[in-house]
């Protein structure tokens, strides 16, 4: 089976890889690009641990084919911080103890960032429904919701 040559942009860097037609974007990011921040928790789009953005749209990268990234812009957890400066969401997650094991954290941060770009002043209910596609089994979500709300408040003040 011949492989597909893909040219795409990941976190601002131009990236090329060869992939099988049936390989997912998640597997391409992890195995060909070497970015293992996005995680596979289910492979069926139910847990959100593989969340990335594709041309700004929040997607489960386990449900996107690697070949579909051709010519697009992919943003992953590895691109969330600006050098040494953490994104407010990252900082608030640490401060609020919003992670226990941390496996869902990359996906939740990417999803929360997408929310705050659309809705800078979300209600608690809006945050809960937006993150309903991101499973966390450790925290019961309480501290995650608080961290997102707090980051949103800080980002509004700064803007």
């Amino acid at each position: 089976m011949s492989r597909i040559h893909v040219t795409t942009t990941v976190n601002g860097d131009e990236v090329e890889y060869l992939c099988e037609p049936r390989e997912t974007l998640l597997d391409c990011l992890r195995d060909h690009v070497g970015l293992t921040g996005a995680k596979e928790g289910c492979g069926t789009g139910d847990c959100g641990a593989c969340s990335v953005t594709l041309d700004g749209r929040l997607v489960c990268s386990c449900l996107v084919l690697g070949a579909e990234a051709e010519g697009k812009k992919v943003e992953t957890i590895e691109g969330l911080a600006d050098g040494d400066t953490l994104h407010p969401l990252q900082r608030k997650f640490i401060e609020h103890a919003a992670l226990q094991c941390g496996i869902c954290t990359p996906g939740i941060l990417i999803a929360a960032k997408a929310l705050l770009e659309k809705t800078p002043d979300p209600t608690e209910t809006e945050v809960r429904y937006w993150l309903a596609g991101n499973l966390c089994r450790c925290t019961g979500y309480d501290k995650i919701i608080r961290a997102v709300m707090d980051a949103a408040a800080e980002m509004r003040e700064a803007s």
Binding site: T36, G37, E40, I77, E78, A81, Q90, F93, I94, G102
Partner: peptide
Amino acid sequence: DGLDKVTGKARFGAD
């Protein structure tokens, strides 16, 4: 270990 876990650097089983 917070920094590693919010930046995607932490290495889990499949990483």
